[in-house]
């Protein structure tokens, strides 16, 4: 479905990862774990075309998408729910959600999807007219997730969704992801919360210092071992 081949990318002259190859199977959930600064967010941004790779290739449905602009990749159903606050800070919560319905295929169900998001996150409904730059960290995270869902993704890249969320809220959003998984979405989930992330994963990658340190099927992974691995190289 989505594949990264011998990819190298970074910022300016600084390379963050080299010769990276990963495969994300259609309809499956792949989790990428790894310490801070490993290059996980950079990888997702490169897949989306926000960063131009120095070498290598990104294959979407077996075809290179490197020549496609970010907006063209979105129209192919590839969506990123970004880490932190890549929100429209000077627009209201509701306006942010409306922007999520911009892709042609998701426009007609704008109202429906907005209601669904408000049902998932009643807090966003309460604060629908608040300017999004004034949201709390957790609320901003909910908005980023809600806005991503408005885009009706087919392949959904999610960068640290639990960042800043309470344990209850984290549990809630993971149950949303489980539903998406049941709907046969292809999910790539970057998470520090290994416990939760492993539960819904089909395949797991461990990224360290710009390299894939481990690639295993979920059933072959022992959380204890993964954590040993994680900390041993940290």
């Amino acid at each position: 479905m989505l594949e990264v081949m011998n990819l190298s990318a970074g910022y300016g002259a600084m390379e963050v990862f080299w010769d990276l190859s990963l495969k994300f199977e259609g309809g499956k959930t792949t989790t990428i774990v790894g310490p801070n600064g490993a290059g996980k967010s950079t990888l997702l941004k490169t897949i989306m075309g926000l960063i131009t790779p120095m070498s290598g290739d990104v294959l979407l449905r077996n075809e290179s998408c490197l020549n496609a602009e970010t907006w063209q990749r979105i129209n192919e159903g590839l969506v990123l729910i970004p880490e932190g606050r890549l929100l429209f800070g000077d627009l209201s919560v509701e306006e942010n959600l409306i922007m999520g319905a911009y892709p042609k295929n998701s426009r007609k169900s704008l109202e429906n999807n907005k209601e669904n998001v408000f049902n998932l996150f009643p807090r966003l409904k309460e604060r629908r007219n608040q300017i999004s730059s004034t949201l709390s960290g957790g609320e901003a995270q909910m908005l980023a997730i809600g806005r991503g869902l408005m885009e009706e993704p087919k392949i959904c890249l999610i960068d640290e969704p639990s960042l800043g969320l309470s344990p209850v809220m984290t549990h809630e959003i993971f149950s949303i992801f489980r539903e998406l998984k049941e709907d046969k979405l292809t999910i790539v989930l970057v998470e520090q919360n290994t416990n939760q992330a492993l539960k819904i994963a089909d395949h797991v990658y461990l990224m360290q210092a710009g390299r894939v340190a481990l690639s295993e099927k979920r059933e072959n992974i022992d959380l204890k071992k993964l954590e040993d691995f994680y900390f041993a190289r940290n």
């Binding site: 989306m48 075309g49 926000l50 602009e69 970010t70 907006w71 979105i74 129209n75 969506v79 990123l80 970004p82 890549l86 929100l87 429209f88 800070g89 000077d90 627009l91 922007m99 999520g100 911009y102 892709p103 042609k104 806005r147 885009e151």
Partner: peptide, 13 residues
């Protein structure tokens, strides 16, 4: 408002 976020919404800047 935010160029990168706009690109992620499928907008052509």
């Amino acid at each position: 408002s935010n160029l990168d976020a706009a690109k992620l919404m499928g907008m052509n800047p």
